[in-house]
């Protein structure tokens, strides 16, 4: 895009930024317009993204470029994808359960293997920390282990929270509240950082007030 494109784009972006920020005053037609435009443009973006990065290279290009078994086997997911579209026709809409079942099966299979390999085992491994003395690191390691165990105790609802479990759960809620507070602060700062970015765009790129 040339410089005229950049100028038009910057004004468009400025208008849309102000339209969204206008919601801080109250709900208004400019905000509604920008909100709806956001949904429409995002849907279009993701449609193009999925077609270009998933369907085209994996299905169309494979079918066009491969030979023999690889060329024909790729028609199975293509057929499943088309069967998914049977939801458009009420009489045969039940057929869409097949590709749905396929995706659910993959999700469930990955739900077991990926969760165990990607979350449970690495997180447990990372929690088995050494305590070799009385340094700050050692103390932090002890706190970390206690935090993980007591948080798990808090979320264990198969038994009433009494006795050891109750005591552990009460310690666990302390860690959970600190974590929620920290996550809140972290998220808020990230959002404020985005706001600063948008204000910088308005005052620097659009209005040229800031250097």
């Amino acid at each position: 895009m040339g410089s005229m494109g950049t100028i038009i784009g910057t004004w468009l972006a400025g208008f849309l930024t102000l339209a969204i920020l206008s919601f801080l005053y109250k709900d208004n037609p400019f905000y509604k317009l920008a909100e709806h435009l956001y949904v429409g443009v995002s849907a279009g973006y993701w449609l193009i993204y999925v077609v270009f990065f998933d369907v085209k290279p994996m299905l169309i290009d494979t079918f066009m470029n491969e030979t023999g078994f690889e060329k024909w086997i790729i028609l199975i997911p293509g057929a499943l994808g088309l069967i998914m579209l049977s939801r458009w026709f009420p009489k045969i809409a039940w057929l869409s359960r097949w590709p749905i079942a396929f995706t659910v099966g993959i999700g469930a299979g990955l739900g077991i293997t990926a969760n165990l390999q990607g979350y449970v085992l690495p997180q447990v491994t990372a929690t088995l920390l050494p305590v070799t003395g009385f340094t700050v690191t050692d103390l932090s390691n002890i706190v970390l282990v206690i935090g993980v165990v007591t948080t798990l105790m808090y979320f264990y609802f198969s038994k009433p929270h009494k006795g050891v479990l109750g005591a552990g759960a009460r310690i666990g809620i302390v860690f959970i509240m600190i974590s929620f507070g920290a996550s809140f602060g972290y998220t808020l700062m990230a959002r404020i950082s985005l706001l600063i970015g948008r204000l910088h765009f308005l005052f620097h790129d659009l209005l040229h007030i800031l250097d």
């Binding site: 969760n115 165990l116 935090g147 993980v148 959970i176």
Partner: peptide, 21 residues
């Protein structure tokens, strides 16, 4: 503390996802 609680929640959620799967 934040990491500890987050880790506990993640382990619990992952085990829940495994049982649901």
């Amino acid at each position: 503390p934040q990491l500890a609680a987050k880790r506990g929640i993640q382990i619990g959620a992952a085990l829940g996802a495994v049982s649901m799967s």
